[in-house]
Simulated assay, not measured.
Amino acid sequence: MNTQTTQTKTDTLDHAPIVPRENLDFGLDGDIPKYWMANDAFKTRFFDAMSTLFPMGEKFFITSVREFRDGVTSPKLQQEVKDFIRQEAQHTLIHRQFNDRLKAQGVDIDDINKQLETMFFVEAPKMTTPTQRLAATAALEHLTSMMCTCFFERRELLEASDPRVRAMYAWHAIEEVEHKAVAFDVLTQVAKAGYFRRSMAMLAITFGFPLTVARIMNHMFKVDGFSLWQRTKLWARGLWWFYKPGGLFIPTIGYYLAYYKPGFHPWKVKEMPSYGTWLKVFERTGDPIAAGNALHAAGQ
């Protein structure tokens, strides 16, 4: 992925407005295959595991930003916080619908939610400050935006996926790009967190996030009936897909490392170049699946 940065001040950077989109229908109650991504258990369960994180994760993001909401004095940032919360709430609703499919497959969604709720809302408040939790939110928003840009900038990654699920992730990606700077702006402008605080949060998230996803994926593989040896082979092939040269994550390294630059701001890293394609199709048709197909087709 060719990541480009600008040198302009953050208050002059052009970026898309945050637009909460509600009552979208992705057809998630339809006949979506169990392994909806190229009939590949590892690739499918990677995305499925991330979906299980979103309801509690989005709630954590909203809560972390709300803790500083009263300190926001800029009318522009106040509106962005409001729209950020509305977008994240919609993400929660849609991913709950998707997770109902996983629950019907035997995935213990209730237990996953319980563990995440304990981690985010019982353990985290005991061990961290509000600023640290907001810093974690800003870091996770950067990683999410990075992955969204990666998935839809490179057409081959989601080529053989079910268009309904792909459309759900396309919509989620679009909105993540739109609000990617909100938590960061609250962190730096209101919480007054500096370089060290945000960098340490990113380091912690870099290790903690994939471990959480891996634990959920392993549960899913067990539910699917894979033996220990089969799971070992799945992980070996999957990790190669993740980290091989030209694989899922290595081309995004520039996007990731940009967060550690002094003077970094999310809008200094360009969003997916095909963002406008999704927007035009959705505004013309009102169909998120058609917009998702268009976004995917516009990838390189």
Rank of each mutant, 00 (worst) to 15 (best):
A49N: 03
Q230T: 03
W278I: 03
F226A: 10
S145Q: 10
G247L: 03
L53V: 08
A49G: 08
A290N: 02
D70G: 14
M56W: 11
A124S: 15
D83W: 09
A89F: 09
F68A: 07
K103S: 08
A294S: 08
W278T: 00
F98D: 05
T131N: 12
G246P: 00
D14S: 11
D108V: 07
K34Q: 15
A191R: 10
A204C: 05
L102R: 04
F282K: 06
A104F: 01
K103E: 12
E271R: 12
F282C: 08
L295K: 04
S64Y: 09
E175M: 01
T12L: 14
K34F: 12
K233C: 02
V269L: 03
I32L: 11
W240A: 11
T5W: 02
L93P: 01
C150Y: 04
H15G: 01
L203Q: 07
P251S: 01
M56K: 15
V190Q: 10
W36C: 06
A104E: 11
G247K: 07
F249W: 00
L24Y: 09
A160C: 05
D185N: 14
L77I: 02
T149Q: 13
R164A: 14
P75N: 05
N2E: 07
D83M: 12
R284A: 15
W240P: 00
I174C: 04
G263P: 12
P17S: 04
A173Q: 10
A138M: 04
